[in-house]
Design a protein around this nucleic acid. Structure first.
Lengths: 216, 216, 216, 216
DNA sequence: TATGAATGAGACTTCATTCAT
DNA sequence: GATGAATGAAGTCTCATTCAT
């Protein structure tokens, strides 16, 4: 997921892809994601996380100075993953495609991320809520909106970079919150919510970034 | 805020508008809102809440069987307040006004509510996050979206009641999450976010509920 | 049950047999007996006792300086009741009857007392257990054994008064503990235990107090 | 006293007979016995037990999930010890001895157990009294009476196994309650009570299990 | 005198964190 | 480096007792 404190040599061909240390670091992060998703951040005990990661509480504290450091590291990991997802979805090379199509696929990708990373919701809510994690929260926001910004900037638009940033942030926030809403619903309703999310985003963004004229 | 367990006789002469009991009940609820807003639900200790309410831990437990009951009561209280705010903002009598105007004012009212009730965010996040509060969460969603639903239904529309319900829920959810986003930002950016929120909602809703023709 | 602190005029013909105060005192004592029997002394809350007695916690504390005073008063009450039961069962006037018969009836009376006074077990165990109630415990023992002593003394016996006291105490203790044992058993087994109790006591006492020769 | 959850390797060299864990487990159990004996089960605080065991409250809860588990473990421990005491006292190999002699020695052994294990009374009273410990109570009764049962069965008797069971249970119960009675008395009286206990049991049991004819 | 709201000491229990092995 | 036993601060909640009304 993310790089552990001690780097380790990754370029030597026949050596294990990850050092033992990295492996354990990632196992703990995955275990934390699971436990956070199941019971929330506060109720997740470090003991439970260590057990889930098939390691000891002592080892956990070798990697993380305290419990909140796990949340931080997980947030970093999610930020990186989201960056990749959004980098693909909003590849500037796709900026000539109809906006609707790009949005639809991006929302679908976003949904996949939420479904496969059930810990994200908790981390997201926790960083948003707790005053001492807000710095982290803003950085998460920035990273996430970054690629959308680039994509939007690639389409000719009269918007200033600051305006584009605003629009990107709002779009991502909206998509995220509706995603979370959808996950508390029945399957049928969930799909309706997702479909409506696409409509909403399209209607919001279309006037700002009109589709380019088809190339002759 | 909400009515305490036992009402008591309120018609006696010019005696206090609230009984001693109601006063204390409300003080505790307000203190809880503050503490929740400051440190979050889990980190808020019942002791801290009692102290903030200038009462004893024993008195707190006279009104609330356990800590979660405070969250419940606060949620009910907020739901009721929001209902009132939205009832005014979406008074069906206003359904002949331009949608933009109604949305603008509703978002402003909503913002006022968020600003004056800093505990709402926490309660909202908590009910959304914790599995055993989801029933409460859904009920709150329904109640909150109710007035928007009625308002939208009052405008002629080709949408089914179910579709209107969906649209209302999404609108309220979006407005809420952007509200929260705005509160983590600087004042200048915050206002831009609110303004953009109005734009987004208008663009989303307008195609569904076209403004009525001006009266001749 | 027992006389409350303030005596009250009981000899005036047309006045209520008990003053309001006495009535309440007795209601509290009865309520305490019930609650003690149900949950034990320590887990019985003074609030629960007051409620069961249809009075207020404040009134309860008018009669009893603290919780243990209720236990004391109840113990006094039981001592008095037991004294009556045993006074009848071991009426010295019956000392000419065969020992077996007297024992059988006494055990039956004792059983009735236990069944109708479910609080007795708890009070008994509590006074026996708690160091600061042992004085009370010994007085209970004395009172209870008193009548048996008188009865035994009335039959010619070579035993000294001290020896008779010892025998009486042991008999009562044994009967009591087997009584308690019987109450934790199924109905069928319970009756066997009671029957065996009679046998045991008869075999123990008979050599000490042989039946008098039948009067010609 | 009893074996702690995880045994551990005990065969290593000349290392401590008990593992650190077992040592602490036993220390806690002994401390609990003392505190229970002094103030009773309900008034014994887990904090006081931990302190008396020279350990921390956290360690106590590492071994026992809650306070009642300490009572359970102590009850098991006592049951096992009593079983051993009674197994020796009622060794069927002794069944040819005069009943009086066997009873005398058994009562003496029983007395030693009570004196050296002052917590037993409390555990005994608690299991007998509290509704949710009655299953444990009955099991303890059975185990404790088991050896007397075997011993009695080894002497020719016309009694059915069920009758023997009843007689054994009653004998043990009686001996126990008289033991407790004796402990609340002065030393001189205490010895008289113990002596009388032997007489009582002998008179009760002798007719049922006559001494075998002396070997020629 | 009766009431019951208020108090707060203290009980049980959890869990983040440390550190000897 | 890994382990997990040990620690103890801190949290939730109960309940005997007081006292203003």
């Amino acid at each position: 997921m993310t790089t552990p404190p001690s780097p380790g040599s990754e370029s030597l061909r026949h050596l294990p892809r990850q050092t033992r240390s990295q492996e354990r670091f990632n196992r703990i992060l995955e275990a934390a994601a699971q436990v956070f998703a199941e019971v929330g951040y506060e109720k997740a005990s470090t003991e439970a996380i260590a057990t889930r990661a098939s390691t000891s509480i002592g080892s956990l504290y070798r990697f993380f100075p305290d419990k909140s450091a796990i949340l931080y590291a997980l947030a970093e990991s999610y930020a990186e993953q989201l960056r990749k997802v959004l980098a693909e979805a909003f590849d500037p090379a796709l900026s000539h495609l109809p906006l609707t199509q790009v949005i639809n696929e991006a929302v679908d990708d976003f949904e996949q991320f939420y479904i496969t990373q059930p810990g994200y919701q908790v981390v997201f809510a926790q960083t948003r809520l707790s005053p001492d994690l807000q710095k982290l929260d803003k950085r998460l926001d920035s990273e996430i909106a970054l690629h959308l910004e680039k994509f939007l900037a690639a389409r000719q638009s009269t918007l200033s970079p600051e305006q584009i940033r605003l629009v990107a942030l709002i779009s991502v926030e909206t998509a995220g919150s509706l995603q979370i809403l959808s996950l508390t619903q029945t399957e049928a309703f969930r799909q309706q919510v997702m479909s409506e999310t696409k409509t909403l985003l399209t209607r919001y963004l279309h006037p700002l970034f009109p589709d380019p004229p088809p190339k002759p």
